[in-house]
Design a protein around this nucleic acid. Structure first.
Lengths: 257, 257
DNA sequence: GTCAATTTGTTGTAATTCGAAACTAATATG
DNA sequence: CATATTAGTTTCGAATTACAACAAATTGAC
């Protein structure tokens, strides 16, 4: 086998597995450890991989950096919120799951223990996550895929969503204003969110505390339309008052860290 | 700092960077290497991370094993076929990409150097791959997601596909009979493939040699409907004769391994 | 405050991994 | 045909990392 071929294969392997050890590669290509080290060092020089003691990993993500770094913010909080929310979802339920990193965390939680869910989503990541559970029936809305986050939006998506009427709508959101307005940045995304609200028997909103009072351009409805809110810190007074006024149950998870 | 907190932070770091070294962690938490090793080993036992000499990486996704192992079969051949096929796709083209592992390889090739493609697909993996290139416009067909391979099939998918009329249709397939019949296993999938054939100006079929003479239940058309066939080994006489008879160009890639 | 359990640090030793240099084989190149 | 050039292997000392066992420190409960 040619050197270039081998190096290409090494890149593929790293991309696929996230990590390869020199031993693995020696085994796989039947060459000496030194040869592998040369390959790895050369590839590392070209930034094709990251070199480490004992092997190599994927280079610092070339694409999707914006989305992937955003994904990590408040990761632990999102997980805790997700853990709390899924307790309210019974087995066998039907639900929408929205675009966003929090909804993705929720999908990860659902996949662990739930059974027989039927889920409609317009988030390609959520669909990929839910595929992991064979008991689930996953329906993906069609439309144009946004490269930045794998969300699917547009007119076609809207029509698709409107075909369904499900038990739960699980929403993420960009901001909640002090007057209870639910806000987001993208007009098209907002239209889909609205459709989800209209076609769900119960709407659950999961937000981390950074969203309170945060501003965004497009109004997609009011907090009074929700059936439950789950968050990780006591909301500001104004919002807490609104929740009380409209008798909307909300859960503030206890932080474990 | 508590042990649980540190371990959670380690997980976050691994998720974020794909890799952390023990040294990094020692530096970051100001604790002894031994403590870090204990943490890493514990986390590895719980499958939260993958342990390696010198550090740790993200765990291997436990799900999708059946599909992922299948994915590796003839991996190199598929890659070579893909490399040959994408040379026929000009920048700025519009194309369908089908369900299957070969089409996924093709998507991986396209993402590397092509520009301004507009792609319609019913394969969630292809969509995820193509997202990597910001120049591409990716349109995903809606419908039910098959857990086993991320294919999207069904009536809704069919209607969605039929809305488009594109330059190229890139097909994968389960088998080609000696009489030139194109065969597959799933009736619903076949209907989608037929729709792709009907709505593409040129249909390109990429198959590895294991598909020749292989039988499957559902007939989805004849080899004469193709505009090009790319494969990795000289096809059997019968099929070669059919290709010649219908003046269908085909390329047999030279194996580099 | 005391005791027990847990967590962390230290030390010594074993196991891996690395890189440099010398050597072999195959392939061009004039 | 002699000579570069390139890729690969082998060997070996140095550096790095890991693990086990025990001591020290911290924590939590009563």
């Amino acid at each position: 086998m040619k050197q270039t071929t081998r190096q290409q294969k090494i890149i593929d392997l790293v991309q696929k597995n996230g990590y390869v050890s020199t031993d693995d590669l020696v085994e796989r290509f039947k060459v000496s450890p030194q040869t592998i080290r040369r390959d790895l060092n050369e590839l590392a020089d070209e930034n094709k991989i990251r070199r480490h003691h004992g092997g190599a990993t994927t280079p610092l993500s070339s694409v999707n950096t914006a989305y992937n770094t955003r994904k990590v913010m408040q990761l632990h909080e999102k997980d805790c919120i997700a853990e709390a929310l899924v307790k309210y979802i019974p087995n066998g339920a039907t639900l929408f799951i929205d675009i966003g990193t929090t909804p993705e965390s929720i999908a990860k939680e659902l996949v662990k223990n739930h059974k027989d869910l039927r889920v409609v989503t317009n988030n390609i990541n959520v669909a990929a996550i839910l595929m992991g559970n064979e008991d689930f029936k996953v329906i993906l809305a069609g439309g144009e895929v946004r490269n930045r986050d794998g969300g699917i939006v547009g007119e076609a998506t809207l029509d698709f969503i409107k075909q369904f009427r499900l038990d739960f709508g699980i929403l993420g959101i960009s901001g909640i204003d002090y007057d209870g307005s639910l806000l987001d940045f993208d007009y098209h995304e907002v239209r889909v969110k609205k459709a989800i609200i209209e076609n769900s028997r119960s709407v659950y909103l999961a937000v981390d505390h950074t969203k309170f009072g945060r501003n965004a351009m497009v109004n997609l409805g009011n907090i009074s339309e929700l059936d439950m809110l789950i968050t990780d810190q006591q909301p500001p007074e104004e919002i807490a008052a609104l929740l009380k006024e409209h008798n909307i149950p909300f859960e503030v998870i206890s932080r474990t860290s």
